[in-house]
Amino acid sequence: MPVVYLVRHAHAVTEEENPLRPLSTRGHDECRRLVSFFKNNRALTPAEFWHSPLARARETAALLQPLAPHAALRETLGLLPEDRPEKMAARLATLASTQMLAIVGHEPHLSSLATLLVTGRSGLTAFDVEKGAILCLASEDKHTWSVRWHLAPSLLP
């Protein structure tokens, strides 16, 4: 069964601080705590990290990559905050049955995508993915997805 980890980028600096909005010190700390947590339990081991072209998503993916050192980092179209989730949902329907994929992106796209995958409907979102949080979804048939777990950095020491 394919597994998809929906990862919202970690905390970033404001646009006033830097228009490219790289990760802040807090964002780096969030990623460090996530890596420390998942290193021990191996619950996050994607074969690839797909990320948006924005600096904060690319940096988050790179900081999580030590969890799966052989996983490729791939800048991927369709992961910007304003992108419609249907296109990405269609791509996920083509995943191999054993594929494990991390998608590092933004709100409101990730919550909309998760809602579409789990409920089959778009519109009102059923999820709120906070910065640095990871929502793990799995599918038996690549069309119906269920939540395996959801972890936010605020839950970690």
Rank of each mutant, 00 (worst) to 15 (best):
R8M: 07
H70N: 12
S146W: 07
V7C: 09
P81K: 02
K39S: 15
P53F: 08
R8E: 03
N41I: 05
G120A: 06
N18M: 05
R8K: 05
F49D: 10
P46K: 00
A96F: 02
N40T: 09
F38T: 03
L155P: 00
N18H: 13
E30F: 00
S139Y: 08
L6D: 06
T25G: 11
L137M: 04
V35W: 08
H11A: 14
L156D: 08
T119A: 07
T76Q: 10
L34H: 03
V104A: 04
A133M: 07
M100L: 14
R58N: 08
N41R: 09
A152G: 13
F37G: 01
P19Q: 13
A62H: 10
A126S: 11
H11G: 07
R32E: 15
H109T: 00
W149D: 05
F38S: 01
T94K: 11
R91L: 07
T94Y: 02
V3C: 05
V104S: 02
V7K: 01
T25L: 12
E17F: 00
A152V: 06
V3E: 14
R74K: 14
T25F: 09
L110E: 03
D141M: 04
L6S: 07
G120F: 03
T125V: 15
H106V: 01
E86Y: 01
S36I: 08
